[in-house]
């Protein structure tokens, strides 16, 4: 059997390639390709590893796990997460109004509470009502001690053991309101 024309053509092409190229040249190019390949991430998976991880949201406090949004005359009402004292609503006032005969203090301390209905955090001003003796509450669950985000007494701006009646004509404590300031950042 003689060589076919196709065999001869194939042999000529391959010998031509072999003459023009070298093993060293091939290895050199392969090395460049490998080095460059490691410098450029090829898959989305590689790029994702460089992105910042989502920050885990802060774990819920005990208060936040049990908070409700229907009865503002109970200590577990969501806005009372950091109230320390008697709920003014139990004394003839409201969430943001003082009972007759008492006056809202010009100063207050501001806490941050999680609303269980929408999962967002709101700034709440715990404004004490002052000027008359302590309220005798009508309900069973009106004396509260919320401590979410409260700081120790040596950081008084964010402490609720203080009678927040500064600036009022009287330092006599009556009850505490929980006025909505707005949506926290």
């Amino acid at each position: 059997m003689g060589d076919s024309k196709i065999d001869k053509l194939g042999e000529a092409v391959l010998r031509g390639i072999a003459r023009r190229s070298s093993r060293r040249g091939f290895l050199g190019k392969l090395g460049v390709a490998m080095a460059a390949g490691s410098a450029f991430p090829l898959l989305p998976v590689s790029r994702a590893s460089g992105a910042p991880a989502p920050t885990p949201s802060a774990p819920l406090s005990d208060f936040e796990r049990n908070a409700q949004s229907s009865d503002p005359l109970r200590c577990d009402y969501w806005r009372h997460c950091a109230i320390d004292g008697t709920i003014c609503g139990c004394c003839g006032g409201g969430l943001h109004t003082c009972p007759p005969g008492s006056t809202p203090s010009p100063t207050a301390w501001v806490g941050t509470c999680l609303n269980p209905d929408d999962g967002r955090s709101y700034l709440i001003a715990y404004r004490d009502c002052c000027g008359t003796s302590a309220c005798v509450a009508s309900g069973e669950d009106c004396e509260c001690t919320g401590t979410d985000r409260e700081l120790p007494i040596y950081r008084p701006q964010a402490n609720n053991d203080i009678i927040w009646c500064f600036g009022d004509s009287s330092m006599a404590y009556h009850c505490s309101t929980a006025a909505l300031v707005g949506l926290a950042e």
Partner: peptide, 28 residues
């Protein structure tokens, strides 16, 4: 103001500076 009425909650978030002012300075 009606004593226990739940007012409409705000939907616009404070800026960082504003929110921190209210939380740490604005009380006093």
């Amino acid at each position: 103001f009606a004593s226990h009425a739940e007012e409409t909650l705000p939907t616009r978030r404070f800026t960082s500076g504003q929110s921190n002012y209210y939380e740490f300075c604005g009380g006093c």
